[in-house]
Amino acid sequence: MKIIVCIKQVPDPNTTVSKIDPNTKRLVRTGVSLVLDPGDESTISAAIKLRDTLGGSEVIALSMGPESAQDGMRRALAMGADRAILITDPTLAGSDALATARVLASAIQKEGADLVFCSTESTDGYTGMVPGAIAEFLGLPQLTFAREIQVEGQKAIIKRVVPTGYKTIESSLPAVVTIASGSFEAIYPTMKGIMGAKKKPFTRLTVAELGLEATQVGEAGARERVLAVGQAEARAAGQIVKDDGSAAQRIADFLQRYQLL
């Protein structure tokens, strides 16, 4: 079984307050610390676990991004992915969700896969549109919000998180699966894994090598436009007090003042 996992580097959600460049109107990704998307760490771990259960299978990490994205891919390799493909090209800057999916789908088409794994949504852009769009480009069914996945013969079966519980759903392979964030514990790379990662195959692809035109991707291909960037309305500063034993009274007074009791 060939499992392709789509992953990307994002500004570290634990240390960065996301900023927008007023000129390009894009998220600032330079001068901030970048990490493999924590959601994707969970997703790649799900793929590795499935590969090890199935046997005779391979996990390929796929990313579209600037050269710095290779750090995230190295981490995926250290976690246990077998090889990595990075699509990197200056024309890709400013891609929208549609273009991102177009590029990733072209690479998946070229490589061939039985299963494509994505996270339900990324931590930085979080449109959640890329996985479904990849499925549509490839004409495949999409099994979304999986918190468990099983493969039986030529079928994939998932437990899909829904607002009231979960549903068990199945489709034929190949299929695109999205992993609900946090459903799988992230594998922590070992020293041996980190050393081994350096020897694993790492391929780079350009837009032209995928047979795509520069006008179909990046800023040029984007079907949305940011007109203006403004400041979010800040919440009025509240009152912060240290508990001196009267916290319960204080909160109750507050609730009463605003007729919440």
Binding site: V17, K19, I20, L227, V229, Q231
Partner: peptide, 30 residues
Amino acid sequence: GLITDATDLAFEGEEIRVTVPWGGENVVTA
């Protein structure tokens, strides 16, 4: 074209203007 996570939208003349919060600090019009 697709815009996600909108908190408001309005027409300005012929143009649709969509308000989207980005991160904690910014809000964009798309």
